[in-house]
Design a protein around this nucleic acid. Structure first.
Lengths: 234, 234
DNA sequence: TCACACAACTTGTATATACAATTAAGCTTC
DNA sequence: GAAGCTTAATTGTATATACAAGTTGTGTGA
């Protein structure tokens, strides 16, 4: 393996394991070059590539720091609904409907890569923008990785925020589709009539395996997913 | 401006203008270092960053080449519906419903950044996977940038393929939402009853301005948008 | 005590060099 | 003509060095 790649791995482990949380300082170019007995340019390359990948943030004169979660994500990736609402200058609040341990159904067990009928944590939360519900979040969590999930107060911290602080995510997959909501979702979204909804199905991994499986349902009349791409970066 | 950045701009113009089409060889590190009177490492940096951004592909021993369009796109970005269908091993075909010049409505004119009531090209096409329609594509095109749009045969080449060969795109914005289809879209999608649909609204730019505005509508029962993210890249 | 200067450290840019690994083209030989 | 060898070109990795530019903390002087 190339030297710069070995240094990247070393730093990656520090970050992915949570040993270095958000904003934690990362070893400087000079420190790494001594520690690994390489030239500064080689250590620099490792740091630079991690910065390109969005894992760290570098700032001239100051140093290199572990990037906050939100900046790790590029186009249309994992965003925190609370941040989104607040960025639009609106008030955010959440209502927790369910928060308990259950036996995993075959479906959920498969998504979490667990045996059927093992216990999993299940939460249902509605997220509000001002006074309108904008997202119903049904979430199943692997209790082996996040044992204290059910004792959190999700009106103060969103599950996404809590989970990424406990088990930093390394991978995620999404599926987006248009569906007609089932009745209990309609109720949570306060929809009088059935209305097309955007549903995002998301699985996220940490180093230790599948952390969580989430179904995020948005009413079509109150939500648009947006993104912008530029191919010119000079 | 930094030297490596000037070289990047020079190369970027060659690619974005279409002067260097897909797979066209890009000047080598040594050639650039002579041409710009910089060291090879500086020329290398320009090429390397363009490669990281997906604009060029580098191959040891061979050289650097302009990347094919499809590899310019990252997560969930602009994909060609025909390629998607074929990748799934299914048959693709298209039916052209409309292909004409129209007066731009206020809405369309705004999206294309043109004055109202100027002529624009308008096409409506249904894309099929095997024998089922999977996408209705309503598209408006800036005739100043793509004057020959209406004389193309879009059963053979998709609009997306044609447009990106004529005016290489430099920017794109998306909006995704869930809607109930209007009647003529239902007809094109061969839907008996109204069904939630995924609608992607897309605008793309080239160097000379907004090229096209497209509304892509997918029936919820036959289409899922998927994506996968990894934060570990070693 | 406050303000300013300075030193130390950090990242950013750039150069010159060396060698490794791979590719591609040309040439020789059979 | 085909197979194999040689050679040149190209990208990949790595080092040592130099200076620029921004940040931060320390200490001096008023």
């Amino acid at each position: 393996m190339a030297k710069f790649s070995a240094i990247k791995q070393h730093l990656y482990r520090k970050i992915a394991s949570g040993e270095w949380p958000e904003h934690h300082p990362v070893s400087s170019e000079n420190a790494l070059s001594q520690q690994f007995s390489v030239s500064r340019m080689t250590a620099r390359r490792a740091l630079q590539e991690l910065a390109d990948e969005g894992l760290v943030i570098r700032s001239k004169g100051s140093g290199t720091y572990v990037a906050p979660i939100k900046s790790q994500t590029s186009f249309m990736a994992i965003r925190n609904i609370a941040d989104e609402v607040r960025e639009r200058g609106h008030k955010y609040h959440a209502v927790v409907h369910t928060m308990r341990q259950e036996q995993a159904t075959a479906n959920v067990a498969e998504f979490l890569q667990l045996p059927a009928n093992t216990p999993v944590y299940h939460s249902v939360i509605t997220h509000y923008e001002n006074h309108d519900p904008v997202q119903v979040e049904e979430r199943w969590v692997n209790p082996k990785i996040v044992p204290k999930y059910t004792s959190q107060d999700f009106t103060k911290v969103t599950p996404h925020e809590y989970l990424s602080s406990v088990a930093p995510l390394t991978e995620a997959s999404h599926q987006i589709e248009a569906i007609a909501p089932v009745e209990h979702v309609m109720h949570w979204l306060k929809l009088e009539k059935p209305e097309p909804c955007l549903r995002i199905q998301r699985r996220t991994w940490s180093e230790s395996g599948v952390v969580t499986y989430a179904l995020l349902t948005h009413p079509g009349s109150r939500f648009v997913l947006g993104g912008h791409l530029t191919f010119k970066k000079n």
